[in-house]
Nucleic acid binder design. Structure first.
Length: 208
DNA sequence: TAGTTGATCGTCT
DNA sequence: GACGATCAACTAA
């Protein structure tokens, strides 16, 4: 049996995550997030993110200091902070910066690239029909992305340089295609324009 | 298509 | 005891 050549999945280095949070947030656009579970591989292109910045950001979970819940945020950059919200949803953040800082980038939406059938299974919607709208709603929103990629509490603290979840380079998104707005679904810190997304991408969760 | 509401629970006050 | 970095089902039109 002959092995077909596969594109090499070389994860981003730790140094990528240790840079300033807003830079990391912007640079995450266009990157591929890869979820590997057994033989199954799910890949999505990151199209929408929001930065949350510890002690200077009242909207951040880390604003009031370290607790049991947000401890991962205060760890070293390049780990996954997964939290539970609204009684039923999980959201994923990519921790940035050095240990003790408490900053992270929320993944709000990805464009599904590989493993669509598995994502569809994970979403398990009652009325799921495979039309254009449903395709878009598959991964458009932080909790939808988590569900589609099978990310849950157990993944909190996962090292993005490990085997289970990691990022690889993708498109270099030109700055003319990047939009920057205030963040969504928060009450405090709304003046900060720390949401970044790719212009005209169908999977962006909220019209810019 | 827009607007409203019910679901559901860990975390912090 | 209140509420949240949300979503999906439902309603009206």
């Amino acid at each position: 049996m002959k092995r077909t050549a596969r594109p090499r999945l070389k994860p981003l280095q730790r140094s990528f995550y240790l840079r300033p949070t807003l830079k990391v947030a912007r640079d995450l656009l266009g990157k591929r997030i890869v979820r590997r579970r057994g033989r199954k591989i799910l890949i999505g292109k990151i199209v929408e993110v929001e930065a949350y910045r510890g002690s200077i950001d009242p909207a951040s979970h880390a604003y009031r200091g370290k607790t049991k819940r947000n401890a991962v945020m205060f760890g070293e950059g390049g780990h996954l902070y997964v939290y539970f919200t609204y009684g039923m949803h999980f959201c994923s953040n990519i921790v940035t910066g050095k240990k003790g800082i408490g900053e992270a980038v929320l993944i709000r939406a990805v464009e599904p690239l590989a493993g669509l059938e598995e994502m569809k299974k994970n979403r398990n919607l009652k009325t799921f029909r495979w039309n254009k709208k449903m395709l878009q709603e598959l991964t458009s929103g932080p909790a939808r992305f988590c569900r589609a990629f099978g990310i849950a509490r157990i993944d909190n603290g996962a090292d993005l340089l490990g085997q289970s979840i990691f990022l690889v380079p993708g498109d270099r998104v030109p700055s003319r295609l990047i939009r920057r707005t205030s963040r969504i679904g928060i009450r405090n810190g709304t003046e900060k324009r720390w949401r970044f997304f790719i212009k005209d991408n169908r999977w962006v969760s909220h019209a810019g």
